[in-house]
Design a protein around this nucleic acid. Structure first.
Length: 473
DNA sequence: CTATGGCACGGATT
DNA sequence: AATCCGTGCCATAG
Protein backbone atom coordinates (compact mmCIF):
# COMPACT_ATOMS: atom_id res chain seq x y z
CA UNK A 1 0.00 0.00 0.00
CA UNK A 2 2.82 2.30 0.81
CA UNK A 3 4.45 1.74 -2.48
CA UNK A 4 1.23 2.07 -4.29
CA UNK A 5 0.68 5.33 -2.66
CA UNK A 6 4.07 6.79 -2.87
CA UNK A 7 5.51 6.00 -6.19
CA UNK A 8 2.87 7.90 -8.14
CA UNK A 9 3.11 10.68 -5.61
CA UNK A 10 6.78 11.14 -5.27
CA UNK A 11 8.13 10.49 -8.67
CA UNK A 12 6.30 13.13 -10.59
CA UNK A 13 6.53 15.54 -7.70
CA UNK A 14 10.20 15.34 -6.98
CA UNK A 15 10.69 18.77 -8.40
CA UNK A 16 7.77 20.03 -6.41
CA UNK A 17 9.26 18.47 -3.33
CA UNK A 18 12.52 20.20 -3.92
CA UNK A 19 10.92 23.49 -4.67
CA UNK A 20 8.78 23.38 -1.59
CA UNK A 21 11.63 22.39 0.65
CA UNK A 22 13.54 25.34 -0.66
CA UNK A 23 10.73 27.74 -0.12
CA UNK A 24 10.17 26.44 3.40
CA UNK A 25 13.82 26.79 4.19
CA UNK A 26 13.86 30.49 3.79
CA UNK A 27 10.82 31.10 5.92
CA UNK A 28 10.98 32.63 9.34
CA UNK A 29 9.30 30.65 12.05
CA UNK A 30 6.57 33.23 12.07
CA UNK A 31 6.01 32.86 8.37
CA UNK A 32 6.19 29.14 8.71
CA UNK A 33 3.50 29.30 11.31
CA UNK A 34 1.15 31.05 8.95
CA UNK A 35 2.02 28.69 6.17
CA UNK A 36 1.26 25.66 8.27
CA UNK A 37 -1.87 27.09 9.76
CA UNK A 38 -3.33 27.73 6.38
CA UNK A 39 -2.30 24.27 5.25
CA UNK A 40 -4.03 22.69 8.20
CA UNK A 41 -7.12 24.75 7.65
CA UNK A 42 -7.45 23.69 4.06
CA UNK A 43 -6.30 20.12 4.30
CA UNK A 44 -8.14 17.61 6.49
CA UNK A 45 -5.36 15.06 6.11
CA UNK A 46 -3.01 17.12 8.23
CA UNK A 47 -3.02 16.73 11.91
CA UNK A 48 -1.26 18.48 14.73
CA UNK A 49 -0.41 15.99 17.42
CA UNK A 50 -0.15 16.86 21.00
CA UNK A 51 3.02 18.00 22.63
CA UNK A 52 4.85 16.09 25.30
CA UNK A 53 7.12 17.35 27.97
CA UNK A 54 10.40 16.13 29.31
CA UNK A 55 9.73 14.79 32.80
CA UNK A 56 12.91 16.33 34.11
CA UNK A 57 13.23 19.78 32.65
CA UNK A 58 9.70 20.26 31.34
CA UNK A 59 10.87 21.27 27.96
CA UNK A 60 8.23 20.77 25.35
CA UNK A 61 9.25 18.02 22.98
CA UNK A 62 8.04 16.43 19.82
CA UNK A 63 5.99 13.32 20.57
CA UNK A 64 7.82 10.08 21.26
CA UNK A 65 11.19 11.75 21.47
CA UNK A 66 13.70 11.94 24.23
CA UNK A 67 14.70 15.19 25.66
CA UNK A 68 17.90 16.01 23.80
CA UNK A 69 19.41 17.64 26.82
CA UNK A 70 18.45 15.51 29.78
CA UNK A 71 19.00 12.25 27.94
CA UNK A 72 22.66 12.95 27.29
CA UNK A 73 24.97 10.99 29.52
CA UNK A 74 27.39 13.83 29.89
CA UNK A 75 25.75 17.04 28.98
CA UNK A 76 28.24 19.37 30.54
CA UNK A 77 31.16 19.92 28.30
CA UNK A 78 31.81 18.83 24.80
CA UNK A 79 32.74 20.46 21.56
CA UNK A 80 29.60 19.20 19.99
CA UNK A 81 26.66 21.44 20.62
CA UNK A 82 23.23 20.02 21.16
CA UNK A 83 21.05 21.06 18.31
CA UNK A 84 17.40 20.22 18.18
CA UNK A 85 14.05 21.36 16.96
CA UNK A 86 12.17 22.88 19.81
CA UNK A 87 8.44 22.97 19.38
CA UNK A 88 7.87 25.45 22.09
CA UNK A 89 6.32 28.42 20.45
CA UNK A 90 7.27 31.60 22.11
CA UNK A 91 6.73 33.11 18.79
CA UNK A 92 5.20 35.99 17.11
CA UNK A 93 2.26 37.33 18.83
CA UNK A 94 1.70 40.44 16.93
CA UNK A 95 -1.63 41.16 18.48
CA UNK A 96 -1.79 44.08 20.79
CA UNK A 97 -4.82 44.62 22.98
CA UNK A 98 -6.61 46.96 20.62
CA UNK A 99 -9.48 45.64 18.60
CA UNK A 100 -7.33 45.57 15.54
CA UNK A 101 -7.82 42.68 13.20
CA UNK A 102 -8.30 44.04 9.73
CA UNK A 103 -6.10 43.69 6.72
CA UNK A 104 -3.61 46.38 7.56
CA UNK A 105 -2.24 44.11 10.22
CA UNK A 106 -1.13 41.50 7.76
CA UNK A 107 0.63 44.09 5.72
CA UNK A 108 3.22 44.82 8.27
CA UNK A 109 3.03 41.93 10.68
CA UNK A 110 4.39 39.49 8.17
CA UNK A 111 7.34 41.64 7.31
CA UNK A 112 10.59 40.35 8.60
CA UNK A 113 11.75 43.86 9.28
CA UNK A 114 10.49 44.53 12.74
CA UNK A 115 11.36 48.07 13.51
CA UNK A 116 8.06 49.10 11.94
CA UNK A 117 6.21 46.58 14.06
CA UNK A 118 7.87 47.82 17.16
CA UNK A 119 6.91 51.39 16.45
CA UNK A 120 3.45 50.53 15.33
CA UNK A 121 2.69 48.81 18.60
CA UNK A 122 3.55 51.93 20.51
CA UNK A 123 1.48 54.32 18.53
CA UNK A 124 -1.47 52.05 17.87
CA UNK A 125 -3.47 53.23 20.89
CA UNK A 126 -3.18 56.85 19.91
CA UNK A 127 -3.86 56.22 16.30
CA UNK A 128 -7.22 56.93 14.79
CA UNK A 129 -8.58 53.82 13.16
CA UNK A 130 -8.65 55.39 9.73
CA UNK A 131 -5.00 56.33 10.04
CA UNK A 132 -3.79 52.83 10.76
CA UNK A 133 -3.31 51.91 7.19
CA UNK A 134 -1.52 55.16 6.61
CA UNK A 135 0.83 54.58 9.53
CA UNK A 136 1.60 51.11 8.27
CA UNK A 137 2.43 52.55 4.89
CA UNK A 138 4.73 55.17 6.34
CA UNK A 139 6.48 52.67 8.52
CA UNK A 140 7.07 50.39 5.61
CA UNK A 141 8.99 53.18 3.91
CA UNK A 142 11.49 53.51 6.72
CA UNK A 143 15.00 52.39 5.97
CA UNK A 144 17.48 50.64 8.20
CA UNK A 145 18.66 53.84 9.76
CA UNK A 146 15.16 54.62 10.86
CA UNK A 147 14.76 57.43 8.39
CA UNK A 148 11.90 58.04 6.04
CA UNK A 149 13.42 57.95 2.61
CA UNK A 150 10.31 58.62 0.60
CA UNK A 151 9.29 62.26 0.35
CA UNK A 152 6.13 62.93 2.37
CA UNK A 153 4.39 64.48 -0.59
CA UNK A 154 4.51 61.22 -2.44
CA UNK A 155 2.97 59.35 0.42
CA UNK A 156 0.29 61.95 0.76
CA UNK A 157 -0.53 61.76 -2.93
CA UNK A 158 -0.48 58.02 -2.94
CA UNK A 159 -2.98 57.85 -0.12
CA UNK A 160 -4.99 60.81 -1.32
CA UNK A 161 -4.78 62.70 1.90
CA UNK A 162 -3.69 66.13 2.98
CA UNK A 163 -0.13 66.83 3.96
CA UNK A 164 -1.37 68.02 7.29
CA UNK A 165 -2.98 64.74 8.20
CA UNK A 166 0.15 62.94 7.07
CA UNK A 167 2.33 65.12 9.20
CA UNK A 168 0.21 64.43 12.22
CA UNK A 169 0.81 60.73 11.84
CA UNK A 170 4.50 61.19 11.11
CA UNK A 171 4.86 63.32 14.17
CA UNK A 172 3.27 60.60 16.23
CA UNK A 173 5.77 58.14 14.82
CA UNK A 174 8.70 60.44 15.45
CA UNK A 175 7.86 60.71 19.10
CA UNK A 176 7.78 56.97 19.60
CA UNK A 177 10.82 54.94 20.55
CA UNK A 178 13.42 55.16 19.16
CA UNK A 179 12.88 58.86 19.25
CA UNK A 180 13.06 60.54 15.89
CA UNK A 181 12.29 57.45 13.89
CA UNK A 182 10.51 58.20 10.66
CA UNK A 183 12.11 61.57 10.20
CA UNK A 184 12.92 62.53 6.65
CA UNK A 185 16.51 63.44 7.48
CA UNK A 186 19.08 63.06 10.25
CA UNK A 187 18.59 66.71 10.99
CA UNK A 188 14.87 66.35 11.55
CA UNK A 189 15.51 63.32 13.75
CA UNK A 190 17.88 65.34 15.88
CA UNK A 191 15.39 68.14 16.25
CA UNK A 192 12.68 65.80 17.43
CA UNK A 193 15.09 64.21 19.89
CA UNK A 194 16.01 67.60 21.25
CA UNK A 195 12.36 68.38 21.62
CA UNK A 196 11.65 65.25 23.61
CA UNK A 197 14.82 65.55 25.61
CA UNK A 198 14.10 69.10 26.65
CA UNK A 199 10.99 67.97 28.47
CA UNK A 200 12.97 66.06 31.01
CA UNK A 201 16.53 67.30 30.77
CA UNK A 202 18.41 70.47 30.66
CA UNK A 203 19.27 71.07 27.06
CA UNK A 204 21.79 73.71 26.08
CA UNK A 205 19.88 76.62 24.71
CA UNK A 206 21.76 76.74 21.47
CA UNK A 207 21.72 73.08 20.66
CA UNK A 208 18.49 73.53 18.79
CA UNK A 209 19.92 76.32 16.69
CA UNK A 210 23.10 74.42 16.15
CA UNK A 211 21.24 71.53 14.63
CA UNK A 212 18.92 73.75 12.69
CA UNK A 213 21.48 75.98 11.10
CA UNK A 214 24.75 74.19 11.43
CA UNK A 215 23.97 70.56 10.80
CA UNK A 216 26.57 70.24 8.08
CA UNK A 217 29.13 72.13 10.10
CA UNK A 218 28.38 69.85 13.00
CA UNK A 219 28.92 66.72 10.98
CA UNK A 220 32.19 68.07 9.66
CA UNK A 221 33.29 69.04 13.14
CA UNK A 222 33.90 72.53 11.86
CA UNK A 223 33.61 74.18 15.22
CA UNK A 224 35.08 77.53 14.45
CA UNK A 225 32.58 78.08 11.68
CA UNK A 226 29.78 76.81 13.86
CA UNK A 227 30.85 79.22 16.54
CA UNK A 228 30.70 82.03 14.05
CA UNK A 229 27.23 81.15 12.88
CA UNK A 230 25.89 80.92 16.40
CA UNK A 231 27.86 83.88 17.55
CA UNK A 232 29.54 82.09 20.43
CA UNK A 233 33.05 81.02 21.35
CA UNK A 234 34.68 77.98 19.87
CA UNK A 235 34.75 76.08 23.14
CA UNK A 236 31.05 76.77 23.58
CA UNK A 237 30.48 75.31 20.16
CA UNK A 238 32.51 72.26 21.03
CA UNK A 239 30.54 71.75 24.19
CA UNK A 240 27.30 71.83 22.29
CA UNK A 241 28.66 69.44 19.71
CA UNK A 242 29.75 67.13 22.47
CA UNK A 243 26.30 67.26 24.02
CA UNK A 244 24.72 66.45 20.72
CA UNK A 245 26.98 63.56 19.90
CA UNK A 246 26.50 62.08 23.34
CA UNK A 247 22.78 62.41 23.67
CA UNK A 248 21.37 62.34 20.21
CA UNK A 249 21.39 59.89 17.40
CA UNK A 250 20.99 61.06 13.83
CA UNK A 251 20.07 57.54 12.78
CA UNK A 252 17.33 56.41 15.16
CA UNK A 253 17.13 52.96 13.63
CA UNK A 254 20.70 52.04 14.47
CA UNK A 255 20.53 52.47 18.20
CA UNK A 256 18.83 49.28 19.23
CA UNK A 257 20.05 46.93 16.60
CA UNK A 258 23.65 46.18 17.29
CA UNK A 259 24.88 48.09 20.25
CA UNK A 260 25.21 46.58 23.64
CA UNK A 261 24.24 49.47 25.78
CA UNK A 262 21.67 47.65 27.80
CA UNK A 263 23.14 44.49 29.23
CA UNK A 264 20.23 43.57 31.47
CA UNK A 265 17.25 41.59 30.30
CA UNK A 266 16.49 41.77 26.67
CA UNK A 267 14.57 44.95 26.10
CA UNK A 268 12.15 45.24 23.24
CA UNK A 269 13.90 43.61 20.39
CA UNK A 270 12.72 44.21 16.93
CA UNK A 271 12.92 40.70 15.73
CA UNK A 272 11.73 37.51 17.23
CA UNK A 273 14.35 34.81 17.12
CA UNK A 274 14.06 31.73 14.98
CA UNK A 275 16.92 30.08 16.75
CA UNK A 276 17.97 30.35 20.36
CA UNK A 277 21.42 29.52 21.61
CA UNK A 278 21.99 29.06 25.30
CA UNK A 279 24.76 27.78 27.44
CA UNK A 280 24.33 24.74 29.56
CA UNK A 281 26.01 26.33 32.54
CA UNK A 282 28.22 29.25 33.46
CA UNK A 283 31.30 27.24 32.72
CA UNK A 284 32.82 28.87 29.64
CA UNK A 285 33.59 25.45 28.24
CA UNK A 286 30.02 24.40 28.67
CA UNK A 287 28.17 22.91 25.83
CA UNK A 288 26.04 25.13 23.73
CA UNK A 289 22.42 24.34 23.29
CA UNK A 290 20.80 25.35 20.07
CA UNK A 291 17.06 25.38 19.82
CA UNK A 292 15.54 25.80 16.44
CA UNK A 293 12.11 27.10 17.10
CA UNK A 294 9.22 25.38 15.51
CA UNK A 295 6.20 27.57 15.12
CA UNK A 296 3.76 25.40 17.01
CA UNK A 297 3.83 23.14 19.98
CA UNK A 298 3.29 19.55 19.08
CA UNK A 299 4.19 18.22 15.71
CA UNK A 300 2.64 17.93 12.33
CA UNK A 301 1.85 14.66 10.62
CA UNK A 302 -0.50 13.03 8.22
CA UNK A 303 -3.55 11.90 10.07
CA UNK A 304 -3.37 8.11 10.02
CA UNK A 305 -7.12 7.81 10.40
CA UNK A 306 -7.65 9.91 7.36
CA UNK A 307 -5.23 7.81 5.45
CA UNK A 308 -7.06 4.64 6.43
CA UNK A 309 -10.34 6.17 5.49
CA UNK A 310 -8.99 6.73 2.05
CA UNK A 311 -9.63 3.11 1.14
CA UNK A 312 -13.30 3.45 1.90
CA UNK A 313 -13.67 6.85 0.44
CA UNK A 314 -16.86 7.55 -1.46
CA UNK A 315 -16.29 7.53 -5.16
CA UNK A 316 -16.87 11.19 -5.67
CA UNK A 317 -14.40 12.18 -3.00
CA UNK A 318 -11.64 9.79 -3.64
CA UNK A 319 -9.66 12.03 -5.89
CA UNK A 320 -9.91 15.00 -3.63
CA UNK A 321 -8.94 12.99 -0.60
CA UNK A 322 -6.08 11.42 -2.39
CA UNK A 323 -4.55 14.72 -3.34
CA UNK A 324 -5.09 15.92 0.19
CA UNK A 325 -3.06 13.06 1.49
CA UNK A 326 -0.43 13.57 -1.13
CA UNK A 327 -0.05 17.19 -0.33
CA UNK A 328 0.01 16.52 3.36
CA UNK A 329 2.71 13.93 2.98
CA UNK A 330 4.68 16.28 0.86
CA UNK A 331 4.42 19.10 3.31
CA UNK A 332 5.47 16.93 6.21
CA UNK A 333 8.40 15.59 4.27
CA UNK A 334 9.49 19.05 3.28
CA UNK A 335 9.22 20.16 6.82
CA UNK A 336 11.41 17.34 7.99
CA UNK A 337 13.85 18.19 5.29
CA UNK A 338 13.90 21.78 6.40
CA UNK A 339 14.45 20.85 9.98
CA UNK A 340 17.13 18.39 9.09
CA UNK A 341 18.98 20.95 7.04
CA UNK A 342 18.74 23.57 9.72
CA UNK A 343 19.96 21.21 12.39
CA UNK A 344 22.99 20.18 10.39
CA UNK A 345 23.68 23.74 9.44
CA UNK A 346 23.62 24.97 13.00
CA UNK A 347 25.63 22.05 14.24
CA UNK A 348 28.54 23.01 12.06
CA UNK A 349 28.03 26.71 12.33
CA UNK A 350 27.92 26.83 16.09
CA UNK A 351 31.14 24.89 16.37
CA UNK A 352 32.87 27.21 13.97
CA UNK A 353 31.55 30.42 15.43
CA UNK A 354 31.66 29.40 19.05
CA UNK A 355 34.10 32.16 19.81
CA UNK A 356 31.84 34.79 18.38
CA UNK A 357 28.74 33.45 20.04
CA UNK A 358 30.34 33.52 23.46
CA UNK A 359 32.79 36.37 23.23
CA UNK A 360 31.50 38.87 20.77
CA UNK A 361 32.19 40.62 17.55
CA UNK A 362 35.92 40.51 17.41
CA UNK A 363 35.96 36.72 17.38
CA UNK A 364 33.78 36.33 14.37
CA UNK A 365 35.38 34.14 11.78
CA UNK A 366 34.88 35.06 8.17
CA UNK A 367 33.00 32.04 6.93
CA UNK A 368 31.64 31.95 3.45
CA UNK A 369 28.37 30.29 2.67
CA UNK A 370 30.10 28.41 -0.08
CA UNK A 371 32.61 26.74 2.22
CA UNK A 372 29.90 25.68 4.60
CA UNK A 373 27.86 24.32 1.75
CA UNK A 374 30.78 22.20 0.70
CA UNK A 375 31.24 20.86 4.18
CA UNK A 376 27.61 19.92 4.44
CA UNK A 377 27.44 18.61 0.93
CA UNK A 378 24.56 20.80 -0.13
CA UNK A 379 24.21 23.44 -2.75
CA UNK A 380 25.33 26.87 -1.71
CA UNK A 381 22.00 28.38 -2.56
CA UNK A 382 20.50 26.07 0.05
CA UNK A 383 22.64 27.64 2.70
CA UNK A 384 21.89 31.03 1.37
CA UNK A 385 18.18 30.45 1.67
CA UNK A 386 18.43 28.87 5.06
CA UNK A 387 20.44 31.73 6.42
CA UNK A 388 18.52 34.64 5.06
CA UNK A 389 15.64 36.09 6.99
CA UNK A 390 16.41 34.35 10.21
CA UNK A 391 17.22 35.78 13.57
CA UNK A 392 19.21 34.04 16.24
CA UNK A 393 19.37 34.80 19.92
CA UNK A 394 22.78 34.47 21.50
CA UNK A 395 23.44 33.39 25.08
CA UNK A 396 23.86 37.04 26.03
CA UNK A 397 20.28 37.67 24.92
CA UNK A 398 21.20 39.73 21.95
CA UNK A 399 19.26 38.98 18.84
CA UNK A 400 21.10 39.18 15.60
CA UNK A 401 20.49 38.20 12.08
CA UNK A 402 21.78 34.75 11.24
CA UNK A 403 23.55 36.16 8.23
CA UNK A 404 25.76 38.09 10.61
CA UNK A 405 27.58 34.85 11.31
CA UNK A 406 28.74 35.05 7.71
CA UNK A 407 29.72 38.67 7.73
CA UNK A 408 33.18 38.79 6.30
CA UNK A 409 33.85 42.31 7.39
CA UNK A 410 32.42 42.50 10.90
CA UNK A 411 35.54 41.26 12.58
CA UNK A 412 37.63 43.75 10.68
CA UNK A 413 35.21 46.54 11.37
CA UNK A 414 35.35 45.94 15.09
CA UNK A 415 39.12 45.83 14.94
CA UNK A 416 38.98 49.10 13.11
CA UNK A 417 36.72 50.63 15.72
CA UNK A 418 39.12 49.44 18.40
CA UNK A 419 42.02 51.10 16.70
CA UNK A 420 40.26 54.37 16.27
CA UNK A 421 38.81 54.36 19.75
CA UNK A 422 42.25 53.95 21.23
CA UNK A 423 44.18 56.14 18.87
CA UNK A 424 46.14 58.96 20.41
CA UNK A 425 45.86 61.10 17.36
CA UNK A 426 43.83 60.73 14.19
CA UNK A 427 45.32 58.02 12.04
CA UNK A 428 45.04 58.13 8.31
CA UNK A 429 43.39 55.34 6.40
CA UNK A 430 46.70 54.15 5.04
CA UNK A 431 48.14 53.77 8.53
CA UNK A 432 45.06 52.02 9.76
CA UNK A 433 45.30 49.63 6.85
CA UNK A 434 48.87 48.83 7.90
CA UNK A 435 47.84 48.31 11.50
CA UNK A 436 45.09 45.99 10.41
CA UNK A 437 47.56 44.09 8.29
CA UNK A 438 49.68 43.57 11.39
CA UNK A 439 46.66 42.12 13.11
CA UNK A 440 46.26 39.73 10.24
CA UNK A 441 43.65 41.54 8.22
CA UNK A 442 44.89 42.27 4.74
CA UNK A 443 42.56 45.02 3.65
CA UNK A 444 43.01 47.67 1.04
CA UNK A 445 43.28 51.26 2.05
CA UNK A 446 40.17 51.97 0.06
CA UNK A 447 38.27 49.43 2.08
CA UNK A 448 39.28 51.02 5.35
CA UNK A 449 37.61 54.16 4.11
CA UNK A 450 34.44 52.28 3.31
CA UNK A 451 34.32 50.60 6.71
CA UNK A 452 34.87 53.93 8.38
CA UNK A 453 31.91 55.48 6.69
CA UNK A 454 29.89 52.35 7.39
CA UNK A 455 30.55 52.82 11.06
CA UNK A 456 29.88 56.50 10.82
CA UNK A 457 33.44 57.43 11.70
CA UNK A 458 34.72 60.65 10.26
CA UNK A 459 37.93 60.88 8.23
CA UNK A 460 41.11 61.41 10.21
CA UNK A 461 41.31 65.04 9.26
CA UNK A 462 38.03 65.82 10.93
CA UNK A 463 38.41 63.74 14.03
CA UNK A 464 39.20 65.47 17.28
CA UNK A 465 42.55 64.57 18.70
CA UNK A 466 41.52 62.98 21.94
CA UNK A 467 37.94 62.16 21.30
CA UNK A 468 36.11 60.41 24.09
CA UNK A 469 34.17 57.44 22.94
CA UNK A 470 31.00 56.70 24.86
CA UNK A 471 30.55 53.15 23.66
CA UNK A 472 32.96 50.94 25.52
CA UNK A 473 32.22 47.30 26.10
C1' DC B 1 52.17 65.64 -2.30
C1' DT B 2 48.87 63.12 0.76
C1' DA B 3 44.38 61.69 2.19
C1' DT B 4 39.73 60.75 0.51
C1' DG B 5 35.70 60.07 -2.05
C1' DG B 6 33.63 58.52 -6.71
C1' DC B 7 33.23 55.24 -10.42
C1' DA B 8 33.80 50.85 -12.32
C1' DC B 9 35.23 45.98 -12.54
C1' DG B 10 35.32 41.07 -10.86
C1' DG B 11 34.13 37.75 -7.67
C1' DA B 12 30.77 36.29 -4.20
C1' DT B 13 25.89 36.06 -2.92
C1' DT B 14 21.11 35.36 -3.77
C1' DA C 1 20.88 36.08 -14.20
C1' DA C 2 20.70 40.16 -11.09
C1' DT C 3 22.84 42.26 -7.17
C1' DC C 4 26.11 43.37 -3.55
C1' DC C 5 30.78 44.12 -1.84
C1' DG C 6 35.82 44.69 -1.86
C1' DT C 7 39.26 46.89 -4.52
C1' DG C 8 41.98 49.49 -7.97
C1' DC C 9 42.44 53.78 -10.47
C1' DC C 10 41.74 58.64 -10.84
C1' DA C 11 40.19 63.25 -9.66
C1' DT C 12 39.89 66.51 -6.09
C1' DA C 13 40.61 68.97 -1.66
C1' DG C 14 43.68 70.44 1.71
Amino acid sequence: MLLQNQSPVLRPQTTAHLAQTMSLLELTSGELKQRIESAIASNPALELVEETRCPQCHRILPPRSLCPICSRPNPISSDQPIVFISPRSIIMDFEYDGSESDNSQEDWATETENLPTFVFRQIAPELAVEDRHLAAHILSCIDEDGLLTVPPIEIARYNHITLERLHNVISLIQHAEPTGVGSPSPQAALLVQLDVLSETHNVPKLAYEAVKQGIDLLSRHAYHELAKVLNISKTEAQRIAQFISENLNPYPGRAHWGDIHQCGEAPHTYQNPDIIITQYSDDPDARLIVEILAPFSGSLRVNPLFQKALVEAPADKINEWQTDVEQATLLVKCLQQRNHTLVRLMQVLVVLQRGYILHGDSFLLPITRASLAEELGVHESTISRAVSNKAVQLPNKRIISLSKLFDRSLQIRTALKEIIAHEAEPLSDTIIADLLLNQGFPVARRTVAKYRSMEGILPARLRITNKIYQENP
